[in-house]
Structure formats: structure tokens, C-alpha cells
Nucleic acid binder design. Structure first.
Lengths: 166, 166
DNA sequence: CCCAGTTGCTTTAAGGTTCAAACAATTGGC
DNA sequence: GCCAATTGTTTGAACCTTAAAGCAACTGGG
């Protein structure tokens, strides 16, 4: 903070260039890897990334989840999930039923076929990721994990702060 | 590599869980920050992130760029850029003209109004980013930059390798 | 019981995104 | 100069995405 001649706080344009460069690099990495995964999924299994992601969420919870749960976990809008689920039910990957205790709630699960299909994809997917990160040693991986955890916490805090204001 | 009793190479399912977890964390960070930037841009300036990104590319090059250049820099498809530019020309932010030397080529630039609008947004944008990364010290930032550079190189190498095969 | 508020999901409108196919213009080999 | 290959852009179909509005069902205080 800098004080001017009348001792009032003055906002000088501070230099945040490093953070900006960091953000752009983070974004580039993610875009690069995501694009690669996207096209390998398409070529190998003729499936889109959002479909794969949704199935990945469901694979972790055999008893199924509600649409809202999925929406929160995937960090996408409710309406988005509705459409995605629609197409996956259509293609036989998902099973969808109305909850017994709350008729608003839709519970979705992988079908047997859906689960089998997903497992096949997941195995390859994991090896693609390993390959994409191949040049990072175990120490690099650990250190990145640590720093990204810190980044996530920082961003959440900032988002939270703003949510309080707005 | 593990060799079985008949001395043939055997593929065992290796554990790539750490890389996978790293990727998911990277993705979470990016999604979180990107979503935050997206909604601040919307609320503050009623502009979408892709429009902002496109204008950011053009701001760096006053003499303008071709659509292909933009497409490569933004890592999005050509068709995508066509539509984006269309809307930004429509709204008066961009100027578009056919190249004198190659009539296939469209050169786009920020208009005066577009540039002014962008500069306003960019200033705030930079401070949002700084705030989102606020809990990272200078050392963290440097270290993350280093590790992400390594990650980018690794991913590019892997993508390159695959492009050669396919 | 009732109704106001909340919650879960769907719909709509607008835009973003991709891939593949089509088109237009340029370039290079001959 | 011609024609094949390449390059730059646009178009079309399908899908993804969001925000906002709307509908349906549940909940709790009175």
C-alpha cells in the first residue's frame, strides 16, 4: 500500500503479470490434455468426453446417484445433466428410475452394458493419462499435487468471498 | 517390464493412479477458475469468455491476424472462430477485411471501440486472477510455472508421438 | 391442514464447440 | 499454362453448455 501526500490510500496499478502468466499456462496444459483425451475417446470408442465423465462418476457409485449429485460433482449445470443423461439412457448405457421416497428425484445408474463399456474405456484412459504425464517424475507429481491443492483452496476462498458479496 | 516363465513380455496392469489423480486435480483447478472468470465477465461486462479470449489474442497484435492464426493460438477449430468472429464483427468489436495478397484470407483486428472495451475488461480480469491465486507465494508461483512447463512439454510429446502413428 | 418456501428436474433460447464436407483461391510440378 | 495438391474459410449437423424461467413435489411453521 502506498500513501500519497495527504495520507490517503492510493491504488496503484500493481503488477499481477506472473499470476496471469501462471493462469494461462495452467489453462494451456489443461486444454492440451483435454483435447488429446477427447480425440482419443472419439477415435477409440466413439464417445464424447462429457459422456465419459458422467459414466466415470456413476462407476464409483453402483447404487446410483441423483441428477443433482451428478451436476455438483461434474461442476456443470442441471440442465446440462438432463440432456446428457437423456442421450445415455437412449443409448442403453444408463438406467433411470424415479425415487420411491421423492417423486421429483431421478436416480441413474450404469447398466450392465454401460459399466462394461466404461471399464474398457477407463483402462485405456488411465494409460493415456500416464503417457501424457510420462516425463514427470514421482517427485514432480507429488509437488504438483501439493501446489494444485493449494491453488484449488485459494481459488475456492476467492470464489466464496465473492459469492458472499453478490 | 515383467517376464513370465516362458520369457515373453507380459503386460501387467500398472498403477497409474497418481497420474490420474493429478490430472483430475489439474482439471478441477482449471474448471473452478475458468467458471469463476466466466461468471465475473458475464456479470461485470456481459461478455462471454470465448469472446474475451479472442479479443485478448487480437489485442497483442494491432495489425491483426488471420482466422487460422487465431484458431491455432486459441486451440479451437476453424469453424468455431468463424462464428465467434461473425458475432464480434456484428457487435462492432472487430473489423474484418479480405487480404490484398490472398483473397481466401480474412484479416481481423480490434476496432477502436473494441480495444477500449477490452482494455477495461483486461484490467479487472488481471486483478481477478491475482485474487484467485492470492494464497500462493512467489515461490509457489515460480515452482508451478516450472512444473506446468514440464507438463506441457510432456503432453505435447505424447500427442506428437500419437499424431505420427495416426 | 395449508400454504409459503425450498428443492429437483426440465425446458427454452442463445451461444459455443467439434468434425467433416464443401468451397474458393493459391501454389508447385511439369 | 495446366492440373493436382494444398491452404484458408465457411457451412451443416450434432452435441455441449449455460442462465433463467417454469413446473412438480416435498417440507415445515402456523
Amino acid at each position: 500500500m502506498i500513501l500519497d501526500s495527504e495520507t490517503k490510500a492510493v491504488e496503484l496499478p500493481e503488477d499481477h503479470g506472473n499470476e496471469l502468466r501462471l493462469w494461462l499456462r495452467l489453462l494451456t496444459c489443461t486444454t492440451l490434455i483435454e483435447g488429446e483425451v477427447r480425440s482419443r475417446l472419439r477415435e477409440g470408442f466413439d464417445v464424447t468426453l462429457p459422456r465419459f465423465d458422467l459414466m466415470a462418476q456413476l462407476d464409483k457409485v453402483p447404487e446410483g446417484m441423483t441428477l443433482s449429485d451428478v451436476s455438483k460433482r461434474m461442476m456443470v449445470s442441471n440442465g446440462n445433466v438432463t440432456g446428457l443423461v437423456e442421450r445415455l439412457v437412449e443409448s442403453g448405457h444408463l438406467d433411470r428410475r424415479t425415487s420411491d421416497t421423492d417423486r421429483r428425484v431421478q436416480v441413474i445408474r450404469l447398466t450392465k452394458a454401460g459399466r462394461a463399456e466404461f471399464r474398457k474405456m477407463a483402462t485405456e484412459h488411465e494409460s493415456w493419462i500416464a503417457d501424457l504425464f510420462a516425463d514427470l517424475g514421482p517427485k514432480d507429481v507429488r509437488e504438483l499435487m501439493r501446489l494444485l491443492a493449494k491453488t484449488k483452496a485459494s481459488a475456492q476462498k476467492s470464489a466464496q468471498k465473492r459469492a458472499g458479496i453478490a
